[in-house]
């Protein structure tokens, strides 16, 4: 039993296999001799990332090298992924500081709320994307690691300049 397949009545110019083949071969040949060069040779060349790129976090520090964070607890509160672990402490002068400050970058959704909410401009998203690690555990960045990172931090979105210009 033969299978009957519907064939739409298209004009010959569209339905002809020959013309389509020759046209296609001309096109591929054009691309071959004159390729659109779009490849970026990654480790050697990098595309610039947007100033608002939200990558792994950085904790900024004061001049004497201590984290700016005052342990106010706003970022763990606002974090929708619940991935910031904060244990605040207080020293003899009554300055609050984080005893434990850990961000699980695996659970983080990189929403940037922590940076927006921070009253001390301490925690920041980073313009950085090379985050490979050998174990899951090493994706939990502690305070030491967060302060030691040096990559540029991202800018917040400015409502008066929505396109970022």
């Amino acid at each position: 039993m033969a299978i009957t397949v519907k064939v739409l009545n298209r004009p010959i110019a569209e339905a002809s296999y020959l013309r389509a083949t020759l046209g296609g071969m001309a096109r591929t040949f054009k691309h071959m001799v004159n390729p659109h060069k779009v490849t970026v040779q990654y480790p050697e060349m990098r595309e610039p990332v947007s100033p608002r790129w939200r990558g792994t976090h950085r904790m900024l520090t004061t001049e004497d090298g201590k984290a700016k964070c005052v342990g106010c607890g706003l970022c763990p509160t606002v974090c929708p992924a619940n991935c910031i672990k904060l244990v605040p402490g207080e020293d003899e002068q009554g300055n609050r500081y984080p005893l434990v400050f850990e961000i699980d970058e695996f659970r983080c959704i990189f929403c940037g709320y922590c940076q927006e909410v921070c009253p001390e401009e301490a925690i920041h998203m980073g313009r950085h994307y090379e985050n490979a690690e050998y174990s899951r555990a090493s994706f939990v960045y502690d305070l030491e690691r967060l302060t030691a990172q040096t990559h540029p931090v991202s800018q917040l979105w400015d409502p008066s300049d929505p396109a970022g210009e």
Partner: peptide, 23 residues
Amino acid sequence: LLFVLDRGRLLSPAQSRLKSAEL
């Protein structure tokens, strides 16, 4: 040969061409 190949749509299944009424 090329004329026939070009017109004949020989590489379509070409079992039943759709009649315009059916279409």
